[in-house]
Design a protein around this nucleic acid. Structure first.
Lengths: 130, 130
DNA sequence: TCTTGCTCCTGTAGTCACTACAGGAATTAT
DNA sequence: ATAATTCCTGTAGTGACTACAGGAGCAAGA
């Protein structure tokens, strides 16, 4: 059984526009077409879309999702490569967290310093200081 | 004393290209020009650029930095509005941290499950599951 | 059968905050 | 005087979408 793009979107959690975008970018293979030219998706194609969705939720960029899909296609032992890609992404995610946490700390201090009602805002003053 | 754009870039930490971009986008006012048409920056202009840099490091989008610069220009009591903008941004930063932390947790589990050498990668299997 | 309304198609442009040229003019250093 | 550096404008590219415009196909009810 094959499904139209709207159904594939609902089942995978990827919007129609984004599915078409992924196809254009070669993240997923080109969808099969009906007689009238509409895209049709079988079980495997929908599974692939759901995989891409999950990878995006884990922060993988599309370029690495392409690699991951290729590795799944390979029959050979691929776990090493997958682990490297995963560990790499984990490191990037942790770096982003660290950046955001220092932002958060600085912002907290500034917002707290910024008491209501004053004329010269201490937060702005701080940000404008030499 | 006024400085060329290269000096302003060094003193503010904003690259030349980005300074011109900020001007195009109206984040900072249009720079004064020398006789030959080159941009020149006085102390205030460089202070403004440094302010923008710091705000970017705190995660403020350019649209809000524009507002913040406007509020600094106003003589009236602006602390309330600044605090609202700051608190808003703090909330967004905290949401991003929360998202990244759940990514991190899920990724950690997956990467650990992905032992070296196996043929069927458990991480890929997980991501492909129904 | 006709019509209404939904889904789908392609192609293009916009988002955000830059970054990277290309091709030329002016300034500074040797 | 010449060479090296800096600066100018304008345009296009990045990542991962999102939002149309303008048109075609399809399914269900009257």
């Amino acid at each position: 059984m094959t499904q139209a793009i709207g159904v594939a979107a609902r089942l995978s959690g990827v919007t129609i526009e984004t599915i078409r975008y992924y196809e254009r970018e070669g993240v997923v293979p080109k969808a099969a077409r009906s007689v009238s030219g509409r895209r049709v998706y079988d079980k495997d194609a929908i599974t692939r879309l759901r995989f891409v969705k999950r990878c995006r939720e884990l922060g993988f960029p599309l370029s690495e999702i392409r690699s991951l899909l290729d590795l799944y296609g390979d029959a050979s032992g691929n776990c090493d490569e997958v682990r490297i890609i995963g560990a790499n992404n984990l490191k990037l995610v942790q770096e982003k967290i660290a950046d955001l946490r220092s932002m958060e700390a600085a912002l907290k201090t500034l917002v707290v310093s910024c008491k209501s009602g004053g004329k010269d805002c201490p937060m702005l003053k701080d940000l404008f200081a030499d």
